[in-house]
Design a protein around this nucleic acid. Structure first.
Lengths: 130, 130
DNA sequence: CCGTCGTATCGACGGCCATCGATGCGACGA
DNA sequence: TCGTCGCATCGATGGCCGTCGATACGACGG
C-alpha cells in the first residue's frame, strides 16, 4: 500500500459567509485522504529519514543493512531502526531479513505514488493537466 | 525560493565496519540539503495544511482568503493563519494583501520543485532516468 | 474620527516525536 | 551448546508542534 488515490469530494456549498470572495469552486481532498497523505509526508519530514532514503537508494544494489546506516547519520542504532520502521510503514522502504542482517530497499512505485499525490493535490498547468 | 537543488556529495569512503555488505556506492544528499528538504515536507506533514492547499487550489481563481478557509477545516482563525504562514514560508503558497483581505494562492513552480526533489532523492527507473 | 471587520501575533497548554541506554531475540560460528 | 553479533523493542526524557483565547494592528465605512 504505497499510493493514495485521493478521492475528491464536492464541497457542500456552504452558502453562508461569502462576504469577501467566491464561496467555493470545485473539488477538495477528503479529510481522511488528507490525513493519509499527511502521514506519508510526515515520514519524509525528518532530515535523518531523508538521509536514510538517499543512502539506501545510492547504496550498492540499492539496498543496505542497518550497520551501514548507523555511521553516516551519526545516530544510535535504536534510533536508526526506529526511523527505518517509520519509512517501511509509510511504504517508502521494504525490509528483507537475510541471515543475520536486515536489508532495506526502496519500495518500487513509492516515488511515483508520491509524485502523483502531489500533482493531484496542487494541480499545476506545468505539472498536471487535470 | 521554492526549489531545492539537492547537492550530492561523495561519500568519504569510511573503509571501517563493512562486515556485512558493500561499504558504500554513490552519492547521497548533503545533510544540510536533507534538512531543507525535510522542512519542505514538514509543511505538508499536517492534514490541515494538506486540506488548505487543496481548498486554495480548487477555489475560484485559485485563490482564497482566510475567512473562506476557517470554516471548511473546522479550526479557529488564529490556527488557520498559523498554518497558512507555514505554507508560505515553505514556498508552497503566496500571500497577497488586497484591501482588508489577505488572499492566498498556490506558488507557481512549487509542485514541480517538490516533484523534482523527490525524484532526485529516490531515483526510480520509472520516475527519473538519472 | 470612531466603530467594525479581517488577520496576524502572543502566551499558554497538551500531546506527539526524536533520541537514548538497556534489554530481548533470533542467527551464526566455534 | 555457548558466546557473539545484528537488530528490534521498551521505557524514559526533552523538545517541538498544533491548538486555543486574548489581543494588537491595519483598512474600510459611516
Amino acid at each position: 500500500m504505497t499510493t493514495i488515490d485521493l478521492p475528491l469530494v464536492d464541497r457542500p456549498e456552504t452558502g453562508a459567509v461569502a462576504g469577501c470572495c467566491a464561496p467555493a469552486a470545485g473539488d477538495v481532498v477528503d479529510p481522511a485522504a488528507a490525513r493519509d497523505l499527511a502521514r506519508q509526508f510526515k515520514a519524509l519530514a525528518d532530515p535523518t529519514r531523508v538521509q536514510l532514503l538517499s543512502i539506501v537508494t545510492a547504496h550498492e544494489g540499492h539496498e543496505a543493512c542497518v550497520c551501514d546506516l548507523t555511521e553516516p547519520v551519526g545516530l544510535s542504532q535504536p534510533t536508526v531502526s526506529h526511523h527505518l520502521k517509520i519509512l517501511v510503514e509509510a511504504g517508502l522502504l521494504e525490509r528483507e531479513q537475510r541471515g543475520r542482517w536486515a536489508y532495506y530497499r526502496a519500495a518500487p512505485g513509492a516515488v511515483a505514488g508520491l509524485v502523483d499525490s502531489v500533482s493531484t493535490l496542487m494541480p499545476s498547468p506545468a505539472t498536471a493537466s487535470a
